[in-house]
Structure formats: structure tokens, C-alpha cells
Computed example of a mutant assay.
Amino acid sequence: MLKLVVNNDLHVNKKDTITCKNSCDLFDEITGECSINQGVDIDSPYEAARCGFFIHRDSMSVPEIKDHTHFKFSLMDDIDDDLLDDQEIFHQLVGKSIYKEEYTYPLKPDFSSYRDDAKWFVSPCGSYGCWIVNHYKKPLSIPKSKDVAERGWNNRVYKSPIPLHDHQSALPISSKMAWLIDEDGFGQYALLVNGKISSISAPKPINWKRH
């Protein structure tokens, strides 16, 4: 039996609704858009609920994310008080974006990756860059294009040691983006927060199988 639930409360404060615009720290006040997913409905609670990049402004930690990839996502506990004196580290811990007077991106990262296994990459066209974090143990050849690369479970997930498409992130977080290659050789974009992989763009479905 289906029930229609109607909310007759006409006094609901829209400011209390969790949306990208009201609640997410990745909302770009300058452009009026999400820093990662341009064109998304910033006033939709549904979009905020389904977004894998959502970082609540009131959160002082990055929640543990469990998905069906081989990556381990860590909850940052016991933060050293000395770290909070560093503005960059503090803002990364709470998911804040730092606006600088001058940016070196994409030629050089504006923020450290805080990882020993991350290397900075600049696209051949010089228009975008990201960190490369590779968990694949075998050599990978670079496909001629994204269209001919071996595709994974999403059109933004494919086998390549480097990204072949721009992540198109807002400038304040572009230096925190990484091309994350899993243990099977499939790469996708992820967001680094204080060296931790806090979000990935397309978690692997449980029932996905290689063709």
C-alpha cells in the first residue's frame, strides 16, 4: 500500500533546509555554483543528499566514507592543536576553501597534498592539473583519448595513468583534486583534504563487472 505524505507545515524555514547553497562548504559564493559540479540545482535538498562531495559547513571533521572501492577513508580524530595554527591545514581539516591573491595553478599546486605517494601532474595542453595517486602495481599505457580508453562503471572512470579530461573544479580547490587509480587500474577524480581521500566522484557499484 502506498501512502501520500503531505507536509502541511507552512512555516518551514527554507534557510534550515540542507542544500548546496545553504549548507555545503564547496558552494562558491563568487560564481553562485557548486565548486565541483557546475550546473547542479544548488537549492535542491535532493541534490545535496545524493552528492558524494557534500561537506557541511558546521562539520569540524571529515566523515568516514564507506563504498565498494578498495580505498580506505579515514575519520580524522585527535587533531594536534599545533596543526590548527597553520591556516592552510586548518581550512583543509574543516573543508574550507582558501582564496588567495595569486594562484600558481595549474603549473604548480597552490596547496600541498600531504601525501608521499602523490605527484603533481599538468595536462599537455596546460589548462588543468591535479595530483596523481596510483594504487595500481602494473604499468599503464596512456590512451590516445578518453573515448578510446577502457571504460569503467562510469564515463568519468577509465584506465589511464593520467586524466584525459578536466575536472573543472573552482580555482580554490583545484589544487586539492587528485586522479586516483585503483588496484585494478581504473582512474577517477577525488578530493584530498589534509592528505586524506575524502570523496571520490564515482564509487564502484556492488554489482559492477568488467565486460
Rank of each mutant, 00 (worst) to 15 (best):
F121L: 07
M177G: 08
K108Q: 13
V94N: 11
S97E: 04
E183Y: 06
G152M: 06
F186R: 00
A48F: 13
A202N: 05
K119N: 11
P106H: 08
I173H: 11
L164W: 09
K66H: 12
S141P: 00
F90D: 10
N155L: 12
M60L: 15
Y128S: 07
W120H: 08
K159Q: 14
H135D: 15
K204F: 04
T104G: 07
L192R: 09
K119H: 12
D110K: 13
I79H: 05
V5R: 08
F73S: 09
N22A: 14
S199G: 01
E102C: 04
L75P: 03
T31G: 03
Y189L: 14
L180I: 06
H211M: 12
K108H: 14
D85Q: 15
S97P: 07
I181K: 00
F73G: 02
E64W: 00
H68N: 15
L2M: 02
E101Y: 04
Y46A: 14
N13H: 15
I36C: 05
S123Y: 04
V62M: 10
R115N: 06
D16P: 02
W120L: 05
I197R: 00
K196A: 11
M60H: 10
E29C: 03
L164R: 03
L75V: 11
N13I: 00
C130M: 06
